[in-house]
């Protein structure tokens, strides 16, 4: 017997936006955090970016003596840079494609199918998290030694692939689980076959998260250093390895800076795209690896 009549606030005055011109109290705590974080988080990155465009910057000048694109030309005409970039892109692409091809179906199975040992196998994937990562890489590298995979393209691909397994399975598992069963059942109801349901309902619904998982895998693999170092060097020299060489050998300071600006900006945009699709939490778990 309630609300028979449509409730419309006929007489309720429209909210008086504008009439109230009061100032919200200023969030001083927040501003303090903001200032602290801006210095600590942004300053290092800004300094790096400035170095990329500094042609001459001698201590103790606060700003560079001369700015310009000179080092861009110099850095980007080095053959080792282009070789490493090409190698890194092919390793990363290979890893991402294989990883998606084997992990997504597995994730679907974990999320939707009932098979013996399902929970135990999933737990096995989680248990990888219980080991310190570099220790695992050492253990795997010992096996690679006997297989002559150290310092080879496929050795690096394999070790990177293993590193991606975890989040390429559990992010998609939650994506598939997030697809409302009732949507699938409704499709079955109107006569769609299970295959048809998967392609027309389940996959499109889960697609954004799957796509985000692919982006994260791509960027993470590209910048991976631990495994690339131990398994790849000295023959397989990926992009981060070249960057580390630039840092360590203290060639021109600007080489490193230029590469960072050159490579990091696109990867940052990719990651932002991934982040838009996923909640911060799921995203962090992906990176938490």
């Amino acid at each position: 017997m309630t609300d028979l009549a449509p409730v419309s606030p006929f007489d309720a005055s429209p909210s008086a936006v504008g009439r109230i011109a009061r100032r919200a109290p200023i969030d001083w705590t927040g501003i303090a955090f903001l200032t602290g974080l801006a210095v600590v988080i942004l300053l290092p990155l800004v300094v790096t970016a400035v170095w990329a465009f500094a042609e001459v910057w001698r201590f103790p000048a606060i700003v560079p003596q001369r700015m310009g694109l000179g080092y861009w030309q110099e850095t980007l005409s080095r053959t080792d840079v282009w070789q490493a970039l090409w190698l890194s892109l092919s390793i990363t692409t290979t890893v991402t494609v294989i990883s998606a091809a084997i992990c997504f179906p597995a994730a679907y199975a974990f999320a939707r199918l009932d098979f013996p040992g399902r929970n135990m196998l999933f737990l096995a994937f989680l248990s990888v998290q219980a080991f310190p990562k570099f220790g695992l890489i050492i253990a795997t590298a010992t096996i690679f030694l006997t297989l002559n995979l150290i310092g080879t393209f496929w050795g690096v691909v394999l070790i990177q692939l293993v590193g991606t397994l975890l989040y390429m399975i559990w992010i998609p598992v939650s994506a598939f689980q997030g697809v409302d069963r009732r949507l699938e059942e409704a499709a079955r109801d109107v006569g769609a076959s299970p295959m048809r349901v998967f392609w027309s309902i389940t996959l499109p619904q889960a697609a954004p998260t799957l796509f985000a998982a692919i982006l994260i895998t791509f960027v993470n693999t590209f910048y991976e250093t631990d495994a690339a170092w131990l398994i790849g060097l000295p023959n397989v020299r990926t992009m981060p390895m070249v960057m580390i060489a630039f840092i360590n050998n203290a060639l021109e300071v600007q080489y490193g800076a230029v590469l960072f600006v050159f490579l990091w900006v696109p990867s940052f945009l990719l990651m932002l795209a991934a982040r838009r699709v996923m909640g911060a939490d799921a995203f962090a778990k992906g990176l938490g690896g």
Binding site: I102, D114, A124, V128, L136, T140, I169
Partner: peptide, 22 residues
């Protein structure tokens, strides 16, 4: 059941070969 096992077989094999076994 069977297809479920088949679908997870490859990642599980990789996991066993390159993590658990090492």
């Amino acid at each position: 059941r069977l297809s479920g096992l088949l679908l997870v077989a490859l990642p599980v094999a990789l996991l066993i070969w390159l993590v658990l076994w090492p």
